[in-house]
Design a protein around this nucleic acid. Structure first.
Length: 698
DNA sequence: TTGTGGTGT
């Protein structure tokens, strides 16, 4: 393949470009503050390593840059490569695991390069692209990993790009693992294409081996020293909440000024620590921080700076996603809630577990961003040594239905032999393939059905795409789309603020459908949409939507996001998937429940006693979620959206009561598919009896 | 007798 002529630059040449009178990217003079910005950039730890980086970049198709946070690599390396690749006329992509990082880095780097955001430097995140329409003009695009994966589907050679920089590779998202595997293919087919992997120091060996022992450049990150103290084993114990609160009070009373950041597993522990600290420390501003906190309260924790010392008590959200300025003291409990996946049961377990050493270092680093800091680890050195070196890759932590579907759609068949960075659990793979067949998205020979091909292009879990298709047959595809988005959205539309839990739960009953949590979600959403539409009519008093939402304990931002998404997706489902739009939920909720029964036939449970059910195909006991509107209904058959543990109990999340008659004709419910023991006896006799009674009723 | 970390197309 013909290689594109390269102008391999030296550091001196790059500096010359940066020091020139005119901006080489725009041909115009630099903005006024250019000189100051340039001096700041040249003080970053990465700056002294430019030649080494360029030399390796020129010699190898893949290289790894490792350094801890604070080195400036996320902002500086892309700029360096923009100049180096300028002659190719192609773009540089830099991927990020999170949307916020992609947009913020883009705007900072646009400023540093003296260009307008969205011209030479831009970003692409799902549903929001801010790059120049003229592809030749854009030189650097920050994007989420998911966006680049999506582009790979339509352009397998990534022909618009000279180089892809993968940032935060150590976070090991599912998208990252997929992306690296697919980029490996691009590398072998395009000799002019390069990949730079940027990671914290922990995983570099794994990446190096994966990419044929490619070169590695390491440079220091932290600019400031963080002193670390461990806790003596006899002082640690199960009551890390009290210990954390006491440590805050101790620092506040005895240590130099400087803000405090505490890491805890979740909301409950955070609110406890906050109230203990408030009781025992004066002149200290205490803020909780976690993702379900309303964004106004989050801003308070991030932005506020008054005369008092500040203490932020946070989940992992402050480890990577949000940065709190001026933290000097970090208190690390060594714990976080982590999603643990059981592939056999397809069960999600949210468990409090020991963090990894990589995560502990990341937490520690939060203390040394602006000056020297101190990190108090509320565990012993022996416990630290026992921690896993790095955090479990995402591909081991969740179901991989959509991963399998997407790889098959990209032309891969034998996924057990796929060149994984870390292979998923074989049972995960087998279960995913089996379910995709049960949902009629994969054929027996492992190829895609027509529905499977369309589902692979749909930004929803495959099971939801199939539900929408079935919905079309029952005239309610739009209802199912709404429900799919409501169930898939990161933020719940129902809010339960601390101190108002009961009031919030009571408010929710106003929307409750006694037979279906899915329809309860749809009712709340539809009610909001009707109230909003009333505001559009003339000669009516306007309703304050924010206040209306607050009064009904609804999250208006979540509702608005769903409205935007359903508009976009509704149109594309109709255009490309030929799905007939239809809505019945107002007059005919039975159709919606029927569709859910058929689509979620792999997720059924049968009644036992109390609020206890038993999942049919995994044969496992579970409770209705305490919030479910089905509680007390004792319905014989239900379908559920997710199966998860919290604490010691297993819950079925978002359930709908169904009739056995709706199941009996499905292939999945023929006698041969019911789970049996080793002796071929049915595991649950009552399942067969109930199905037989239903067949007799038809 | 009931309860939850963080992401993304």
């Amino acid at each position: 393949m013909e290689s594109i002529a390269r102008n391999q630059l030296t550091v001196a040449q790059v500096q010359h470009l940066e020091d020139a009178n005119q901006n080489p990217l725009t041909g115009k003079s630099w903005p006024q503050d250019h000189e100051g910005i340039l001096q700041g950039r040249r003080r970053l730890p990465v700056y002294g390593r430019y030649q080494e980086i360029l030399d390796n970049y020129h010699q190898s198709q893949v290289m790894i840059l490792s350094s801890e946070t604070g080195s400036g690599k996320s902002t500086q390396v892309p700029q360096l490569l923009v100049y180096d690749e300028y002659e190719s006329g192609l773009q540089i992509a830099c991927t990020q695991p999170r949307r916020l990082a992609a947009t913020e880095l883009a705007s900072r780097v646009a400023e540093e390069m003296g260009v307008n955001l969205g011209e030479e430097v831009g970003y692409k995140i799902g549903g929001d692209h801010n790059v120049n329409q003229n592809k030749k003009k854009t030189r650097l695009a920050y994007m989420t990993e998911g966006v680049l994966l999506r582009q790979l589907r339509s352009d397998k050679l990534l022909s618009a790009y000279a180089c892809v920089i993968i940032d935060e590779a150590h976070e090991r998202t599912v998208d990252l693992d997929l992306l690296l595997a697919l980029l490996k293919k691009v590398i072998s087919r395009r000799k002019d294409f390069k990949v730079v992997i940027m990671s914290a120091t922990m995983d570099t060996k794994l990446f190096q081996e994966y990419f044929d022992n490619c070169p590695l450049v390491h440079f220091p990150g932290l600019k400031f020293e963080v002193k670390t103290f461990y806790t003596a084993p006899e002082e640690t114990g199960p009551d890390f909440v009290t210990l954390a609160a006491a440590t805050v009070v101790h620092i506040h009373k005895n240590q130099e000024p400087g803000d405090i950041l505490v890491f805890l597993p979740g909301e409950n522990e955070i609110e406890k620590v906050c109230s203990m600290v408030r009781r025992n420390a004066k002149d200290l501003d205490v803020f909780p921080l976690y993702s379900s906190l309303p964004s106004g309260d989050q801003r308070l924790a991030l932005d506020s700076s008054g005369p008092n010392r500040k203490c932020v008590v946070s989940t992992n959200i402050a480890e990577t996603s949000l940065t709190i300025a001026n933290v000097v003291y970090v208190i690390d409990t060594g714990l976080s809630r982590q999603l643990v996946y059981n592939p056999r049961l397809r069960l999600n377990m949210l468990e409090v577990r020991l963090i990894s050493q990589a995560s502990a270092k990341q937490r520690m680093g939060r203390a040394g961003r602006t000056k020297n800091g101190v990190c108090y680890r509320l565990y012993s050195k022996a416990v630290y040594d026992s921690m896993a070196p790095s955090t479990e890759p995402g591909i081991h932590c969740a179901s991989i239905d959509s991963v399998v579907l997407n790889l098959v759609a990209s032309g891969y068949r034998k996924l057990i032999d796929f060149d994984w960075l870390d292979a998923p659990h074989p049972e995960s793979l087998a279960r995913a393939a089996q379910h995709l067949q049960d949902w009629e998205l994969l054929k027996d020979d492992g190829s895609l059905t027509r529905s499977g091909r369309l589902a692979s292009k749909c930004p929803l879990d495959p099971i939801w795409y199939r539900a929408i298709e079935i919905g079309a047959k029952f005239g309610c595809s739009l209802d199912i789309l709404d429900i799919a988005l409501l169930c898939s959205s990161q933020k719940s539309i129902f809010i339960r603020p601390a101190g108002y839990r009961q009031a919030a739960d009571l408010a929710r009953t106003a929307f409750a459908d006694p037979l279906s949590d899915h329809l309860t979600l749809a009712n709340a959403f539809n009610t909001y949409m009707r109230v909003r539409q009333l505001n559009d009519q003339k000669n009516r008093p306007k309703i304050d939507l924010e206040r209306w939402c607050t009064r009904h304990f609804l999250n208006m931002r979540a509702l608005e996001e769903i409205d935007i998404k359903r508009g976009e997706m509704g149109a594309s489902l109709e255009d490309t998937c030929k799905i007939t739009p239809g809505r019945t939920s107002i007059t005919d909720t039975t159709s919606v429940r029927k569709v859910l029964a058929i689509a979620f036939c792999t997720h059924t449970a049968i009644y036992r006693s109390g609020d206890t059910y038993r999942t049919v195909h995994e044969n496992t006991p579970a409770l209705l979620s305490p919030h479910s509107s089905l509680v007390g209904g004792n319905y014989e058959w239900i379908v559920y959206t997710a199966f998860q543990t919290s604490g010691r109990r297993q819950y079925l999340e978002t359930a709908t009561a169904i009739n056995a008659e709706w199941l009996v004709d499905l292939p999945f419910f023929q006698d041969s598919r019911l789970p049996t023991t080793g002796d071929r006896l049915l595991r649950q006799e009552n399942v067969k009896r109930s199905l037989d009674r239903a067949r007799a009723r038809i």
